Measured scan of single mutants.
Amino acid sequence: LETFPLDVLVNTAAEDLPRGVDPSRKENYLSDEDFKAVFGMTRSAFANLPLWKQQNLKKEKGLF
């Protein structure tokens, strides 16, 4: 999966995202380093959170 810089994904409308980016899964296009910096946890820890908590975190970080 291709990764993009944080500033390309945060608070970006679906139509302005790079081609192929799923707007409902912007976090998947962050590098592992950016993911950890944004969410303060690994991808696996994030995946283990309840869906509502994942969505709330994504909203807080501008990735929803």
Results as ranks from 00 to 15, higher is better:
Leu57Ile: 09
Leu63Tyr: 02
Gly40Leu: 12
Asp34Gln: 08
Asn48Ala: 13
Glu33Ser: 13
Val21Tyr: 05
Leu9Gln: 01
Gln54Ile: 04
Lys59Phe: 10
Asp16Leu: 05
Ala45Glu: 13
Glu60Gly: 07
Leu51Asp: 11
Phe39Val: 02
Ala37Leu: 14
Phe35Asn: 00
Gly62Asp: 07
Asp16Trp: 05
Gln54Thr: 01
Phe35Met: 04
Pro5Asn: 05
Tyr29Asp: 02
Glu27Tyr: 03
Val38Lys: 01
Leu57Phe: 08
Ser44Asn: 13
Phe39Gly: 00
Phe4Met: 07
Pro18Ile: 03
Phe4Cys: 04
Leu6Asn: 02
Lys36Thr: 14
Asp7Thr: 09
Thr42Leu: 12
Phe35Leu: 03
Gly40Arg: 13
Phe4Val: 06
Ser44Ile: 14
Arg19Gln: 15
Pro50Thr: 08
Glu27Trp: 02
Lys59Leu: 15
Val21Asn: 03
Lys58Pro: 00
Lys61Met: 10
Lys53Val: 14
Ala47His: 14
Asp34Ala: 05
Leu63Gln: 02
Phe64Ile: 10
Glu27Gly: 01
Asn48Cys: 11
Lys53Cys: 10
Asn11Trp: 11
Thr42His: 10
Thr42Gln: 09
Gly40His: 14
Asn56His: 12
Phe46Leu: 03
Asp32Ala: 11
Ser31Lys: 07
Asp7Leu: 09
Asp16Asn: 08
Pro23Asn: 04
Lys58Asn: 01
Lys61Gly: 07
Thr12Asp: 05
Leu49Ser: 03
Lys26Met: 13
Gly62Cys: 05
Thr3Lys: 09
Leu57Ser: 04
Leu1Val: 14
Leu63Val: 03
Arg25His: 14
Pro23Leu: 05
Asn11Lys: 08
Glu33Val: 12
Pro18Ser: 01
Thr12Gly: 08
Phe35His: 00
Val38Gly: 01
Phe46Asn: 00
Gly62Ser: 05
Phe64Tyr: 13
Ser24Gln: 14
Leu6Pro: 06
Gly62Gln: 05
Leu49Met: 11
Thr12Ile: 09
Glu60Val: 09
Asp34Thr: 07
Glu60Lys: 10
Ala47Arg: 13
Asn11Gly: 10
Gly20Val: 08
Ala47Thr: 11
Asp7Trp: 15
Leu9Gly: 02
Arg19Met: 15
Pro50Phe: 02
Asp7Gln: 12
Val8Phe: 15
Asp34Phe: 02
Met41Leu: 08
Phe46Ile: 00
Glu2Met: 15
Glu60Cys: 08
Val8Pro: 01
Ser31Pro: 03
Arg25Asn: 08
Pro23Asp: 07
Lys61Glu: 05
Thr42Pro: 11
Glu33Leu: 11
Asn48Ser: 14
Leu9Phe: 12
Asp16Ala: 07
Lys58Glu: 02
Ser44Cys: 10
Ser24Glu: 15
Ala37Met: 13
Asn28Pro: 02
Gln54Glu: 00
Pro18Trp: 02
Phe39Lys: 00
Asn11Ala: 08
Phe35Ile: 03
Asn28Gly: 06
Thr3Leu: 07
Asn28His: 11
Asp22Arg: 03
Gln55Arg: 11
Val8Gln: 10
Pro23Met: 05
Leu30Glu: 00
Ala45Tyr: 09
Phe4Trp: 13
Leu51Thr: 12
Lys53Gly: 08
Ala13Ser: 12
Gln54Cys: 01
Thr42Glu: 14
Ala37Arg: 10
Leu1Met: 13
Thr12Ala: 10
Ser24Tyr: 14
Phe46Asp: 00
Asn48Gln: 13
Lys59Glu: 10
Lys36Phe: 14
Asp16Gly: 07
Ser31Glu: 04
Asn48Trp: 09
Tyr29Gly: 02
Gly20Cys: 11
Glu27His: 03
Glu15Met: 06
Lys36Leu: 13
Ser44Arg: 13
Glu2Asp: 10
Ser31Val: 04
Ser44Leu: 12
Gly20Lys: 05
Pro18Lys: 01
Leu57Thr: 04
Lys53Trp: 11
Asp22Leu: 03
Asn56Ile: 13
Val38Arg: 01
Ala14Glu: 15
Ser31Met: 04
Lys59Arg: 12
Asp7Cys: 10
Lys36Cys: 14
Val38Leu: 09
Glu60Thr: 08
Phe39Asn: 00
Lys53Gln: 14
Pro5Ser: 09
Leu1Arg: 15
Lys26Asp: 03
Ser44Met: 12
Arg43Glu: 02
Arg43Leu: 06
Ala47Pro: 00
Asp22Pro: 01
Pro18His: 04
Asn56Tyr: 11
Ala47Asp: 12
Val8Ala: 09
Phe39Arg: 00
Gln54Asn: 00
Leu49Cys: 05
Phe35Asp: 00
Asn56Thr: 12
Asp16Phe: 06
Ser24Ala: 13
Val21Gln: 03
Leu57Glu: 05
Lys26Val: 15
Trp52Ser: 11
Arg19Ser: 15
Leu1Asn: 13
Tyr29Asn: 05
Glu27Val: 03
Trp52Ala: 10
Trp52Cys: 10
Leu30Ser: 00
Gly62Ile: 01
Val8Glu: 05
Phe39Tyr: 02
Val21Trp: 05
Met41Lys: 01
Glu15Leu: 06
Val38Asn: 04
Ala47Cys: 08
Pro50Ser: 09
Pro23Ala: 10
Lys53Asn: 09
Lys61Ile: 08
Lys58Val: 03
Val10Leu: 13
Thr12Asn: 06
Gly62Asn: 07
Glu33Arg: 10
Leu1Thr: 14
Asp7Phe: 10
Glu60Leu: 11
Leu9Pro: 02
Thr12Tyr: 07
Gly20Asn: 09
Ser31Trp: 02
Glu33Ile: 10
Leu51Lys: 11
Ala13Arg: 14
Gly40Ala: 14
Lys26Gln: 03
Asp22Glu: 05
Glu2Asn: 12
Gly40Glu: 15
Leu6Lys: 04
